[in-house]
Amino acid sequence: MLSVLTGGLEAARLAQPPIAARVPELAPESIHAPHSALALEGVSLSFGGIHALRDVSFDLRPGEIRAVIGPNGAGKSSLVNVISGLYQADAGYIHLGGRRLRHLRPEALPKLGVARTFQNLALFPGLTVEQNVAAGLVFRRRHGLLAQLAGLPGARAEAAEVADRVRDVAGFLGITAHLHRLVSTLPYGLQKQVELARALVASPKVLLLDEPMAGMTATEKAEMAAHVRSARDRLGLATILIEHDIGVVMGLSDRIAVLDHGVKIADGTPPEVRRDPDVIRAYLGAEAA
């Protein structure tokens, strides 16, 4: 595990594009800045006696790809689950869409412009690719069951709109050829793409990606990284990326937050984070620092 990580760090050091230049003024704490797409303020979360998150503050700017890394059990997924309302923080606030919220309801996420993918695939195996992606637009539907059954013009126009949106996103991610297949019959890498499509179809402002490249081949990872980057470029998305592959993270992110045992131990641009003694200690153990 450690050798994998150091290998990743090494590789990242060799091939390092100066991405951070795009985001001006990287003050590590700009929590209450009105221009952040999302911010956490002193969020703590515990399960019984285990502190999953301790007083974590964190901000995300529009158009930024923000990685969250850390060893296993560091609290990365907990962070995403707090933001998406699946866990309720014991303390702290979430700033989203100009509001300071104590808790989020998961049902309210799409309307707040937040979409996410899951660490383990969370698709609907009994639906086609097209239907899976279309499910990402259900929250916007204005026409009820009766209008659909009666085939009212409004309901039909809406169905056509949905189909158009789905085709757009599918084209963008290169999965058009598979639209009519049952999603459970697709290979794993493609299913991950479908999940990204479902998250992107409603044009969210904030995208939470929980290990989008886990279990992928190198080629698939590169493809997924390109998608994440071009989604940001085209839609101006703010992205939170949880990922274990340090090489990918270093190449893709504008800023990186490092969690260890639920505490944010470092936050900054990839070169800053790579030099940080705390980060090196967390990943490599005390002797290495």
Binding site: L86, L109, A122
Partner: peptide
């Protein structure tokens, strides 16, 4: 198929 995912995507 997936109640949690369904809830989160609206």
């Amino acid at each position: 198929d997936n109640e949690t995912a369904a809830k989160v995507i609206g």
